[in-house]
Simulated assay, not measured.
Amino acid sequence: MKIFNVVFAVLFVLFAALQWNDPDPYIWMPIYLYGAVFCGLAAAGNYYKGWYLFGIVACLGYAVSLFFAKDGVLSWATEHHAENIAGAMKASTPWIEDTREFFGLFIIIVVLLVNFVYISQKRAKKMRKKMMKIG
C-alpha cells in the first residue's frame, strides 16, 4: 500500500500542477491536492477513514453532476460519439472538458476507495484478533 500511495500522491501533485493554466484551477487544484495529501498521509501509515469517505462522497456528487450536465459525459458518449478526449491538451468543447474532469474525479474516487477499504479491513482484522483474545 505504501508504494500505491506514494505513486498516487506524486501523480495527484502533478495533476494539480497541470491545472495551473486551466479555466478553473481554484476548483481542480484543491481537489487533486486533497487526494495527494491523504495518499501522502497513508504512505506514512496514517489513515483517515472519515476523510476518505468525505472525499469519496464529495467527488462522487461532482462526478454525477458532470455526467448528467448538458454538455457532460452522457452528451459526449451519445451526441458526440465518444470523440477522442486526449487529442489536444486544450479542450475546445465543453463535453470534452467535462468528460476529462469526470475521469479525473473517477481516479480520485477509486484511490480514496482503495484506502478506505484497506483501512476498514485492517481495523476489522485487528478487532477480530482482539475479540479472539478476550473470548
Rank of each mutant, 00 (worst) to 15 (best):
L112Q: 07
L53E: 02
M29Q: 12
K125C: 04
K130Y: 14
G87D: 08
S92P: 00
I134A: 15
Y47H: 15
E79K: 15
T78Y: 10
G87W: 03
P30K: 06
I96W: 02
G45L: 02
H80D: 09
E83M: 13
W28S: 03
I3E: 07
H80F: 14
Y26W: 00
T78G: 09
A88I: 08
A44F: 05
L18G: 15
K49L: 10
R128F: 07
I27D: 00
N84P: 03
F54R: 04
S92N: 15
Y48P: 00
A63C: 11
L53G: 07
A91G: 12
A86V: 14
P94V: 06
A44H: 03
I96E: 01
A42K: 01
F15T: 02
P25R: 05
V6K: 11
N5K: 09
L53A: 15
F4N: 04
G40K: 01
W51T: 10
N115Q: 09
E101R: 09
R128I: 06
Y34E: 00
M29F: 01
D71S: 15
E101P: 02
H80E: 12
G135V: 13
G45S: 05
A17Y: 14
W76M: 10
K90C: 05
A36F: 04
K2M: 13
Y34N: 05
T99E: 02
L112D: 01
N5Y: 08
L33M: 10
W76K: 06
S65Q: 13
L11T: 12
F67N: 02
A16W: 02
L74I: 13
F12W: 11
M131I: 14
P94G: 09
E101Q: 15
L60Q: 11
P30G: 06
E79S: 15
V13T: 13
M132L: 14
A86S: 14
Y32M: 02
Q121I: 08
A69M: 10
K49I: 11
K70H: 12
V73Q: 08
W28L: 03
Q121W: 08
F106E: 01
W76P: 04
F102Q: 04
V57W: 00
N5F: 08
P30Q: 05
K126T: 12
P30R: 04
H81T: 12
R128N: 14
L60E: 10
A58E: 04
V10M: 10
D22S: 15
A36P: 00
I107H: 03
Y118I: 04
M1P: 06
A69C: 13
K2Y: 09
